[in-house]
Design a protein around this nucleic acid. Structure first.
Lengths: 152, 152
DNA sequence: TGTAATTAGTGGCATATGCAACTATTTTGA
DNA sequence: TCAAAATAGTTGCATATGCCACTAATTACA
């Protein structure tokens, strides 16, 4: 049929969608959807961030962030505490329930990375990360610049 | 805040989401959404494919494919013709209206690739494609194998 | 100091996407 | 040959995601 030689964009799309499927499947048992794990993982790295900080670090729309955290809160994985020094914002904290599944949640991403890296040398893996980082930086810079709310 | 050194998976997610934003923005004027361009581009390569062929080539769920094509048909970009030799399936053809915007639609993806490749040498671009291809192959193989409907 | 601009978060809307159940047609094999 | 299995496509449902308009709180500045 069509030649299977694809573009960077096509592979990115496939990798993203397949990754979402894998994550969704693995976390289903905990009721955690593919849209939520990214926030849990960010909070495992640094607990107590605000929604704004999460959005800007993860480059995810603040509406999307609000909805994902609302769901995580309803499920008892996080709790939100109004900041005394700025009552507009929250500090988002992981609950005991979330800490208990830390290794499992983090494991999903590391397992997926291992699946992707199968057959790649250490050097190739390093290179892949470096090149993706460059392209990601280009993308973020471009989208950021052409935004109505330019980032610093 | 958090260190900005991300994983392959995180960069893929960012690249995908930013790419979707870019494509959506550029094609908005034609009423073509970010979920449709991929089908137009596949048909520009080979017109007259069936939905099943499009789904399997693009690795996109057949339900998603059906909805995207339905919308493209409603907008007059494609028409579907029942196959005489197998009345379950269609052949999907681009209309004159779709052929007229071919360069523009294809240009969106090439422009995005150029944005991503900014500052990368030819060799780096080749490597990026090669590594993404390997990882994409790993992902497809893994998801395919663990599917309820294993592909050949 | 008081008003205008900015910022954090929410909620509604539109779209994209996968999954599962369904229909209609075609293929397989006892 | 004909019943069962497989295949192409559709539809409803759930979730994810971005955008926009909105509120409440905070900051800037005239």
């Amino acid at each position: 049929m069509i030649d299977q030689r694809n573009t960077i964009t096509r592979w990115v799309s496939l990798l993203y969608r397949y990754g979402q499927m894998y994550i969704g499947e693995r976390l289903k048992a905990h009721g955690i959807g593919k849209g939520q794990h990214i926030f849990l993982n960010a909070l495992y790295k640094e607990d107590g961030l605000s929604q704004e900080e999460l959005s800007s670090y993860l480059k995810i729309d603040k509406g999307t962030t609000a909805k994902a955290l609302k769901k995580l809160e309803a499920q008892g994985y996080v709790l939100r505490q109004v900041r005394e020094e700025d009552k507009r914002s929250y500090r988002v904290f992981l609950t005991e329930k979330a800490w208990r599944i830390k290794d499992e949640v983090r494991g999903v991403l590391t397992d997926w990375r291992h699946i992707l890296s199968d057959g790649l040398t250490e050097e190739e893996q390093r290179l892949a990360l470096e090149l993706l980082e460059k392209m990601g930086g280009n993308a973020a810079r471009f989208i950021g610049e052409n935004d109505r709310t330019p980032k610093a």
